[in-house]
Design a binder for these strands. Sequence first.
RNA 1: CGGGCCGUAGUGUAACGGUAGCACGAGACGUUUGGGACGUUUUAGUCCGAGUUCAAAUCUCGGCGGCCCGACCA
Length: 422
Amino acid sequence: MRQSQLFTKTRREAPKDEVAKNAQLLIRAGYIHKEMAGVYSFLPLGLRVLNKVIQIIREEMNEIGGQEVHLTALQDPITWQTSGRWSDEANDTWFKTRLHGAELHGGGELGLANTHEEALAALMRGHITSYKDLPLYAYQFQTKFRNERRAKSGILRAREFLMKDLYSFSRTEEEFRDFYEQVAAAYLRIFKRVGLGGKTYRTFASGGSFSKYSDEFQTICPAGEDIIYLNKEKRVAVNKEVYTEEVLADLKLDRKKLKEVKAIEVGNIFPLGTKYSEALGLTYRDEVGDSRPVIMGSYGIGPGRVMGTVAEIFSDEAGLSWPQSVAPFTIHLIELPSKDAAIKQRAGELYQKFCDAGVEVLYDDRDLRAGEKFADSDLLGLPYRVVIGEKIEADGLYEVKNRASGEVNRLNEVAVLELTAK
RNA sequence: CGGGCCGUAGUGUAACGGUAGCACGAGACGUUUGGGACGUUUUAGUCCGAGUUCAAAUCUCGGCGGCCCGACCA
């Protein structure tokens, strides 16, 4: 993409009402726009990052047999009344709205979905009837609306946000547990692929009423709102909310070997048991013809929160520094101003070669001074910067700077393409 | 939801109760051109509503909005 065509602008300073590093940098670099507290729009560069994250999650979900769906944001109160979660006492994150005129079921009321256990369990009643239909796994990327008492930390805790939610439908506890572990493994692959692998720990957390524990995926980061106790060797952690002697004994963890750190909950998987299937009548006939409730599990990742976490961790004083897997573009091709028309021509040709080779490149063809272009480049944080200017020699080599390491190399065209083929 | 702090051009910041100023941005012209260059010039603001006062960005009350701490977070 030609940067002269990009409508977003960078800023020198972040708005004073943004304190969170992720929001400050993402706004300064023009990746997102704050609509109101806890509500952010994604602009072209930000959407590219978000879609990279989404695609990585999608691939891993498909890999373990997930089938992608897209449920509705508008929710029928009947379903939620049946599960007991329609009232504001039972669920205080509701945004509710109302239909025009007509007195529908709940007096014309509708809810904006804050999760989809109910909707999907109700939907599955029409598709799950026999043990032969199970197990099955469905997931989606969908906007969730939660009326948080306090939105905070930029895009890490928003009132409107995208979530990948996967739901499993199994016959037996063993079948459920087997899949649960597959998801846990897939989650670790996802966090590794987006660059958070080394800092992300599977963490024991409260299991609610259906199970002893649930598992969170916590990424070590000072901006996190959770406190966890981690064992680096075993690569496990315990959330402060269940950090008791009893739990430590149960998990065979030695308190002395645990380290207290702040972390961001980037994912959460938990057993639902038969809570929703029983409430909503989601049953199947087993091999001998008996009716049994389906065993469910729920598995969430917020792509926006993952993006915010990556921004928190992969950034420095100058700006963002994306891992290549989620960077909006791989290469930032910078053409410096010159009276020599050959510079512009050479940059344009290189841009075309990158495009032809399928390399994602942002071509800074704007009529700006070098300093501004470099500052913008550092702020945007694309993995590699290639500069074409008068200093370039006629040896066919390009100056390539690695944003993360600061390392500068002179490479030929082939080497540049290889470097970015990862 | 409890507590605290705060709302001034697009952004960031000044102004004792007394002329709303500066920087960046954006526009124009010229000189520049490998790390946010310079000159001339133009543009644009006191969140909303009451009250006190000769006079309110400034004081008081209400509303709306923002941030932080806490509680909460299937």
